[in-house]
Nucleic acid binder design. Structure first.
Lengths: 228, 228
DNA sequence: ACACAGAAGAGAGCAGCGCTCTTGATTTAG
DNA sequence: CTAAATCAAGAGCGCTGCTCTCTTCTGTGT
């Protein structure tokens, strides 16, 4: 039933949200490694074992936070895509990229949670897949719009990768040339390379003007996928 | 003194190495999160407190492993660079990139240690900086050779980034045009975006033929820095 | 050749962790 | 109104990183 009919169901939802909020606060403060169920319980005035009524394990709680983080980032990306929907394709592209970077700088621990090392014995449940794809889909959307409106400069594609590109088109990038689909996936990964390096300190003593550097680099990515 | 003159000093070095080896084995088996000082001690038939004579904390042990991992990866990259020293610049470039990818696939947990989320409070000590730069320097070397031998197609560089590029040239990329230096740093970060996405599972259900895709993408990176 | 400072290991112990199981209270449903 | 489901709490297990103390050993200067 979509309506929570009892006071109990409502309370359950509220407590679940409160747990996730407290956990997210700790996550932002200390990072995923130091997120402790007992500390979350303390903050809520509960006892640690009570949390197990809501999350079967610490990793399950982390998984819930992972999904939320993906959604939060995805929402930021989609908002940026829609905010500049009239602009030139390259500007829309860089707008989304800058939204991703901005979100990452604002939520470094959550970014580390989803794009850093996988935490436990590692398994990404099916639930995360949809949320994890939102940034990529936002980028695909921009490229598709540009393709339909003005055409793209199609990057070269070696013959051995053509089937791969056609599969990508069929599975998640409809109405986009296969050459572009392949380039898009590469640019998508490369975008997070740029963001991750800045966030995790690899750019220390290497890049000073991070913002200008990033804008320049993602403009290059846009050209790489055929945007003009 | 470069020669450890006492038997004691020699024993100390041997035990230190044994600890790191055992720790590395556990790291490869379980990942950094589950690396436990007590388990390392057990494996060596010592008691946990004895390890503190060699490493002042678990994080210090991790730092030692980080440096070793950087050096191991850097050595792989340099070996690849030198193995194909006569080949065309683009092939040398892709050779080094593939060495990086190969090392990462062979040592996923160590890769996660150095390019994944940084650990708790953790500030990268000065000691890591040299080792962390080796891959980048290998790439720079290839581009410099190509520049001196045959010239490069210089990528465009917006005016606001010119000082940045000149600083890069002065600090770690001598004899390379500033345009190329900036493009090089971007390509360096993007390379690890590609590797990280593959390793951390972001390419699941997205890229099938990982090897061909990677080769194609890093060829694109090579073109981006001006190699032909 | 010997005595001694310093180094190394053992052991106990502290506080914290994730997680399980049991117990008693409270709410919901039949 | 009673039976079933739900939930908070408490005790406890085995693990963790780390500290402190005590004992043994050993390399070295006299």
């Amino acid at each position: 039933m979509s309506t929570p009919q009892g006071a109990r169901a409502r309370a359950r939802i509220e407590v679940t949200v409160a747990i996730k909020d407290a956990a997210r606060r700790q996550l932002a403060r200390e990072g995923a490694a130091k997120l402790s169920l007992r500390a979350v319980a303390r903050e809520l005035g509960m006892v640690s074992s009570a949390l197990y009524r809501y999350f079967p394990s610490r990793d399950e709680l982390l998984t819930a936070l992972i999904i939320d983080a993906y959604d939060s980032l995805g929402e930021a990306a989609e908002k940026a895509r829609d905010a500049v929907s009239g602009a030139a394709p390259v500007d829309r592209w860089t707008g989304v990229c800058e939204a991703v970077r901005g979100w990452a700088l604002a939520h470094p621990h959550e970014y580390a949670l989803i794009y850093g090392s996988p935490v436990p014995g590692y398994s990404a449940p099916e639930t995360t897949v949809r949320a994890a794809g939102r940034v990529g889909l936002a980028l695909i959307g921009i490229v598709r719009d540009a393709h339909e409106r003005a055409g793209l400069a199609e990057p070269p594609l070696p013959a051995e990768l053509r089937p791969e590109g056609e599969r990508m088109v069929a599975e998640f990038a409809p109405d986009v040339p296969p050459e572009v689909a392949v380039a898009l996936v590469a640019a998508w990964a490369q975008l997070f390379g740029l963001v991750g390096f800045e966030l995790f300190g690899q750019f220390n003593k290497v890049v000073e003007d991070r913002e200008a550097f990033f804008r320049h680099a993602v403009t290059g990515l846009a050209h790489g996928v055929g945007l003009r």
